[in-house]
Simulated assay, not measured.
Amino acid sequence: MDPDNAAAELRRLDTSSLLALFTTLEAPTIAEIDGEYTAALLAQPNLFAVTTGKAAVANPLGPWLCKAFRPVDEHGGRGYNTFSEFGRVRQRYPMRTLVAPSRYDGAPAYTLIYRAYTSLCGSIHMVDEVRRAAPGVHLGMGTWGFTDAQRRVPRPFLLTGPVGPYRGDIGTARPDFTPGHRELPGLTPTAPTRAKEL
């Protein structure tokens, strides 16, 4: 599918349709995702998600710009989000990345684990899953919460790019962090994640 048409189609769909589409898509490889990708929220599942999403990423004083990623090795990488604050780009909310089974269908998803670093997103157990909708167009499902039910609610977003280079690593790693069931509920107990090594 043409990237412009793919992005337009994703913006048109409701949350249920986006999740259904997500389960048909493939995960990008770790090496494939490199640089900054323009980020935008898509249709949200309920009023609470709309309200919290707007407060977090659509604040006119600090709008969300990008998610950014760099491969560390073939097993995973690192990343961050950028926001515009008073005309300057600020990096926030670092994450570890790896390919892991999706919480929605068990198939591979490019997975962003915020708990690996100290931040608000890590404190609320935020995890994003990303799959390729078209070349340079990726559909993401964001999740966060303190219970399994809360963490199953999909909050779709769109990534397009890359539109720029990776700016550099940020963040303070949590000592001895290894992703668990809260971050990777689709992972079998015997499957290694290697995220601790990144």
Rank of each mutant, 00 (worst) to 15 (best):
Leu120Gly: 10
Val72Asp: 00
Leu98Tyr: 06
Ala116Val: 09
Lys67Trp: 10
Pro94Met: 01
Trp64Val: 12
Asn46Lys: 05
Val130Glu: 05
Arg132His: 05
Ala40Pro: 00
Ala134Met: 09
Thr23Gln: 05
Leu21Lys: 15
Asn59Gly: 11
Ala56Ser: 14
Ala40Asn: 11
Glu26His: 13
Met95His: 10
Gly76His: 05
Gly87Ile: 11
Tyr114Trp: 03
Tyr114Ser: 00
Val72Arg: 08
Glu36Ala: 15
Ala107Glu: 09
Asp73Val: 06
Arg103Ile: 05
Asn81Pro: 08
Ser123Thr: 11
Gln91Ile: 02
Arg78Pro: 07
Ala55Gln: 12
Ala109Thr: 01
Asp105Ile: 02
Asn59Phe: 10
Ala31His: 00
Glu32Phe: 11
Ala56Met: 14
Leu98Glu: 06
Ala109Ile: 03
Phe83Tyr: 15
Ala27Cys: 06
His75Pro: 02
Met95Asp: 01
Leu65Asp: 14
Asn46Tyr: 11
Tyr37Asn: 08
Ala58Ile: 01
Thr29Gln: 09
Ala40Asp: 15
Arg70Lys: 09
Arg88Leu: 15
His125Arg: 12
Pro101Asn: 11
Arg115Ser: 14
Asn46Ile: 07
Arg70Pro: 04
Phe69Asp: 04
Leu98Trp: 08
Val99Leu: 05
Val130Ser: 02
Gln44Asp: 12
Pro94Val: 02
Thr111Ser: 00
Gly76Phe: 06
Ser123Val: 09
Val72Glu: 11
Asn81Ser: 12
Leu65Pro: 09
Ser84Asn: 13
Arg70Glu: 12
Tyr117Gly: 01
Tyr114Asn: 07
Pro45Trp: 04
Pro108Phe: 03
Cys66Thr: 15
Arg103Leu: 06
Thr111Ile: 03
Arg92Leu: 12
Ile33Asp: 01
Tyr37Phe: 14
Ala107Arg: 15
Asn59Arg: 14
Gly77Ala: 03
